[in-house]
Amino acid sequence: MTFHVLVTGAGRDTGRLLALAFAAQGAHVIATARTPAAAEETVALIRANGGSATAAVLDLASPESIAALELDRLDVLVNSGARYLEGDASPADITDTIAGAATGTVLLTERLLPLLRASKRADVVNLISAAGEPGRHRSSAHPAFYAAKHAQAGYAEILSARLRPEGIRVISLFPPDFVQAGPRETGAELTAQSVVDCVLFAVHQPRDCFIRSLHFEQVVDTRTTAKENH
């Protein structure tokens, strides 16, 4: 039976790669994005490769947009949509960043829990960030992004503990800042495709395997390391 996967932030970059990857493995993908054009472009790419997908407009920073989302079935929720923020930020930028990654993740997941509870293979996947790990300071992201990702990580941790008795897995990934494309070799920066492959690995484990989180080593900056050791 075809499994149904909703991917947030599927209109570009890593979210789009996730949507394409799940569709290539036979899933029906609900590709969501803030604009209809971005979501439809991802769906067109999936269908061009023989996959199955539908598009949906979803703004994670808007409770009204989340409430308006209509689905009748879901097996896997991939919370990958989040606004990256760095440099100088306006109050509106900060509000949007925290609302999307933190509040949006909570509201969307809570809204879709009834559908996930009806599935026999339910997973919630959270693409968080190393910025959500205690003591990690190497990302150049704005502090508001750190705050949003710590909130997302805290929610995922307690949700994992509470949903495990129901057989619902909550899987969180904590990658460092990564690039969309590059050489996938020792010493190179982590690529989006490698992150996607880790998501697929975790989701396709047998149901007795509850992977709560995946953490990644960063590329070592010897200059930074030297400063940290003195």
Rank of each mutant, 00 (worst) to 15 (best):
M1F: 01
H4R: 15
V5K: 05
V5P: 03
A10Q: 04
A10H: 05
G11P: 10
D13T: 07
G15N: 05
G15I: 04
L18M: 15
L18I: 15
Q25Y: 00
Q25E: 15
I30R: 07
A31T: 03
A33I: 06
T35A: 14
P36L: 15
A38N: 11
A39N: 05
T42D: 03
A44D: 02
L45M: 09
I46E: 03
R47A: 13
G51A: 05
A53E: 03
A53C: 08
T54I: 09
A55G: 08
V57Q: 07
L60R: 11
A61P: 12
S62E: 11
I66Y: 10
A67T: 11
A67M: 02
A68M: 01
L69I: 05
R73W: 01
S80D: 12
S80W: 02
Y84P: 01
D88R: 13
S90H: 07
P91H: 08
A92F: 00
I94H: 10
I94D: 06
G100D: 08
A101Q: 11
A102H: 15
T103R: 12
T105H: 02
L108H: 05
L108M: 09
R117M: 07
K120E: 13
D123I: 08
V124G: 01
N126M: 12
N126I: 14
L127A: 04
L127G: 04
A131C: 10
G132Q: 07
R136T: 09
S139W: 03
H142F: 10
H142M: 11
H142C: 09
P143S: 07
F145M: 08
F145C: 03
Y146V: 14
H150V: 11
H150N: 08
A151N: 12
A151Y: 12
A153F: 06
Y155L: 03
E157K: 08
A161D: 13
P165S: 14
E166W: 00
R169Q: 08
R169F: 01
I171K: 09
F174Q: 07
A181R: 14
G182E: 11
P183D: 13
G187T: 13
E189K: 13
V196A: 06
L200G: 02
A202T: 13
H204N: 13
P206I: 15
P206Q: 13
P206F: 12
D208M: 01
C209L: 04
I211N: 02
R212W: 01
R212N: 11
S213L: 02
H215G: 00
Q218S: 09
Q218W: 01
V219M: 05
T224D: 05
T225V: 13
H230C: 10
